[in-house]
């Protein structure tokens, strides 16, 4: 991916569309562009192989939109990301196409919405957010999560349970991918507190 970004940006510089000083910026843009459209491509391919293209697209849409603002777990290596994304998506499409809507699923969706509102945004090492950015992203995540929850309820009321389950699964996936980061942050805070207590005792 990095080599491809380098080739594209070199071509843009040769065509005088951008300056040499902006190389790093535009390489990041190319990288982000491909990482941005990849989930949709995966969803169509994996969904197509499973005969569940509509399910996969309806599932991936809330995931793509909410995660862009809420953040979550990121793998350190790109190949780990690509493999685990495929497996996760396959698992979610399989689950969404085989489970029936019930009270337990409703409860998990409500947990996902609350978790997204309370815990977002979660930034990563490679893209740190400033305090004012965090406030804004939190507001945006709240609005978008509530919007998709309303869509979920609306679809249930209209009798479109299968689509509602897809939307719900997408939201659960987004919230679920924040859990490793939440656990890491809690563990960090506990370690800091016990270190602080040890120093006071001494």
């Amino acid at each position: 991916m990095e080599q491809l970004a380098g080739v594209i940006v070199s071509w843009l510089i040769r065509q005088e569309a951008i300056e040499e000083e902006s190389r790093e910026l535009y390489e990041y843009a190319v990288h982000s562009f491909f990482l941005g459209i990849t989930p949709l491509i995966y969803a169509v391919i994996i969904g197509g192989l499973m005969g569940e293209v509509r399910t996969s697209i309806v599932l991936i849409l809330p995931f793509m939109i909410i995660r862009k603002f809420s953040g979550g777990f990121h793998a350190k290596r790109e190949w780990v990301c690509l493999v685990s994304s495929c497996l996760l998506l396959f698992g979610c499409i399989f689950t969404a196409s085989h489970i029936e809507h019930n009270v337990l699923f409703d409860a998990i969706v409500i947990w996902a919405v609350v978790s997204l509102i309370v815990c977002s945004p979660i930034d990563s090492e490679n893209r740190r957010l400033e305090p004012d950015e965090k406030k804004l992203r939190k507001k945006e995540t709240t609005i978008i999560s509530l919007f998709f929850y309303i869509v979920y309820i609306g679809l249930l009321l209209l009798g479109k349970q299968s689509y509602a389950v897809c939307i719900g699964t997408g939201m659960i996936l987004t919230a679920g991918l924040q859990v490793p980061c939440i656990i890491k942050n809690i563990a960090k805070k506990c370690r800091k507190m016990s270190f602080h207590d040890t120093r006071i005792e001494k």
């Binding site: 951008i18 989930p39 990121h74 990301c81 990563s124 893209r127 995540t141």
Partner: peptide, 26 residues
């Protein structure tokens, strides 16, 4: 292409992170 990538940079600057499970260094 440069215009599209600039649009992409606007999106990235005003959102939290990448969608996929990997975040390139900003």
């Amino acid at each position: 292409v440069a215009s599209t990538l600039e649009r992409m940079l606007h999106i990235e600057a005003n959102t939290s992170s990448c969608i996929l499970l990997h975040q390139p260094k900003a």
